[in-house]
Simulated scan of single mutants.
Amino acid sequence: MDWKLPREGSCRCGQVKIRISAAPLVTMACHCTGCQKMSSSAFSLSAAIPAEGFEVISGEPVVGGLHGATKHMFCPHCMSWMFTRPEGMDFFVNVRAPMLDGAADFAPFIETWTAEKLPFAQTGAPHSYETLPPMDAYEGLMKEYVEWVG
């Protein structure tokens, strides 16, 4: 797929802008109750971007969510949840896909935490997990994702 890189995005008010210069490793929808509450929706959508392919190009995002070791980053003005830096996984940034221009290109390939899924929520993701995929499944899922996006 032609990812049209680099690709930019922003929070709702536009004060924090981001840029990706690398294709996603995989795209996801998370149905956990934490994501439901932070996104005020049935699930959150994200794209795992290699860390070296992600940058904040303007503004200063702030930590939100639970303020734990995993850093959920928000715009300080409009409070849009923009990206997450998962604890112990410095090789990627989990970007909220709707923040990126052309968000329709980032359909979820994996849906996680379906055990907490709202009964009406449908994503069309080809892979579903009651919690998270086993760690040893990610390499295969990422290879299959590349084929899926063509």
Rank of each mutant, 00 (worst) to 15 (best):
L66C: 10
H67M: 08
H67R: 15
G68T: 05
G68Y: 06
A69K: 13
A69C: 10
T70M: 03
K71H: 08
K71L: 15
H72L: 10
H72K: 08
M73P: 10
F74S: 04
C75L: 08
C75S: 10
C78R: 13
W81L: 12
W81P: 00
M82H: 01
M82C: 10
F83Y: 14
T84H: 06
T84S: 13
T84I: 06
R85I: 10
G88E: 07
M89G: 05
M89Y: 09
D90H: 08
D90K: 11
F91K: 11
F91W: 12
F91Y: 08
N94C: 14
R96Y: 01
R96A: 09
A97R: 00
P98D: 02
M99P: 00
M99N: 12
D101W: 00
G102Y: 06
A103I: 04
D105R: 15
A107C: 00
F109L: 02
I110P: 00
T114D: 04
K117A: 14
K117Y: 06
A121K: 08
A121P: 05
T123G: 07
T123Y: 05
G124L: 05
A125F: 02
P126Y: 08
P126T: 04
S128E: 13
S128T: 12
S128F: 03
E130T: 15
E130M: 15
T131R: 11
T131K: 14
P134K: 15
P134S: 10
D136G: 09
D136S: 13
A137F: 07
Y138S: 07
E139I: 10
E139K: 14
